[in-house]
Amino acid sequence: MIKKHFNPIQQKSGEIIEFLMSSPDMPKDDNLLFKIRLSIEEAVENIVNYAYNDGVGWMEVGTDLENTGLILSVTLKDAGIHFKPLAKPDPDLSLPVEQREIGGLGIYLCKKLMDDVIYHYEDGCNILTMKKKIAQE
């Protein structure tokens, strides 16, 4: 398990992503790592860019293993705007190119690449937890 509090978070996306990816909880498999890294990048970027109106604020991130190492859990917490990331409808993938919106794909990618994406709002904080099965039972 690892956990770290980052403040400030402006311009710190890279550092936060590398902290999480360097966790001993991470699997070794390249294909899994690719999906986990992309999900982490999208979630971290959302918070760094949109959580705080003036861009000033903190983020606490961590990883843990559940079910005796079967499941990786990544948690991101911030005290920014109550942003309900999962309330947004998924993008309409059937639209022609002229009508596809530029943007809005980040959380959708997290939902597709991870097994579970769970959001809570608690004590004035957004808590986003992403889970991925990383080993066989």
Binding site: E42, E98, I102
Partner: peptide
């Protein structure tokens, strides 16, 4: 090796422009 949604966004912009 990799693209995030930031990269996808740019491919979509380019595709729209080319179309």
């Amino acid at each position: 090796e990799y693209t995030s949604s930031q990269g996808l966004r740019l491919f979509l912009m380019l595709q729209k422009s080319v179309t």
